[in-house]
């Protein structure tokens, strides 16, 4: 499989980068700056018409959605063991988690927009930021409930592509929501952080990052 990943540090494309590292797959990486116009270049717009990341070229085919990419790569490369096929007893949970990852991802994208992309106070809606923060906390409590039985990863059958999809959100979430009351999520996050493949998906020293504060407080209304 010939794979090229178009990526911006700390963006959703990190899911795919992490997954590729978990596969041990060969791939070509192209890194873009999230904030400047590099994602709007003519060349890149022919790959991704909306100028967003990720996009992946797989054997000449372009895919844009990180959830679809994760699902597709996992099922096309089943030997890596990150896939749970239709005959697997945890198939349903696997699918739910892959899609749930995007529910978490949308709240994070809204918070990233509210706190970081909109750089002037008048552009923001503190009410929306407050609501999105609450919703993020709520979707994380579902993970807390799932992890409470002591499982190491989201499925009892072990680490899967769903951990990369959801795990990106869990990695990012503490910048917006405290994990203090979510001890199982916090411990799960520590386990993810200990994986060499996740470490390789993080921005290298000195790289320009999207998230520069440890915690983004909800602005006063």
């Amino acid at each position: 499989m010939q794979i090229t990943l178009h990526h911006a540090h700390e963006a959703r494309s990190m899911r795919v980068l992490w997954l590729l590292e978990e596969f041990g797959a060969d791939y070509t990486l192209r890194v873009y700056d999230f904030f400047n116009k590099s994602l709007r270049s003519e060349d890149y717009l022919t790959i991704h018409p909306a100028g967003r990341v990720p996009s992946v070229e797989v054997d000449g085919r372009v895919m844009l959605e990180s959830g679809a990419i994760a699902e597709y790569l996992a099922e096309q490369l089943p030997a890596a063991g990150l896939h749970r096929g239709p005959d697997h007893p945890e198939r349903m949970e696997y699918l739910e988690l892959l899609h749930y990852a995007e529910t978490i991802g949308q709240h994070l994208a809204n918070l990233t927009q509210g706190h970081i992309v909109l750089y002037e106070d008048w552009m923001r809606s503190p009410t929306q930021i407050g609501l999105e923060t609450k919703r993020l906390a709520k979707v994380l409590t579902r993970l807390e409930a799932q992890l409470r039985d002591g499982r190491a990863y989201l499925l009892t059958s072990g680490f899967s592509a769903a951990d990369c999809a959801v795990g990106y959100g869990v990695w990012l979430a503490p910048r917006f929501v405290s994990l203090e009351k979510l001890p199982h999520v916090a411990a799960y996050r520590d386990r993810l952080m200990a994986r060499p493949a996740l470490q390789k998906a993080l921005p290298p020293e000195g790289a320009k990052r999207i998230y520069t504060k440890d915690f983004y407080e909800v602005p006063d209304v």
Partner: peptide
């Protein structure tokens, strides 16, 4: 791939 892509899109 396209089917999955549209599902998520």
């Amino acid at each position: 791939a396209d089917w999955l892509q549209w599902l998520h899109y």
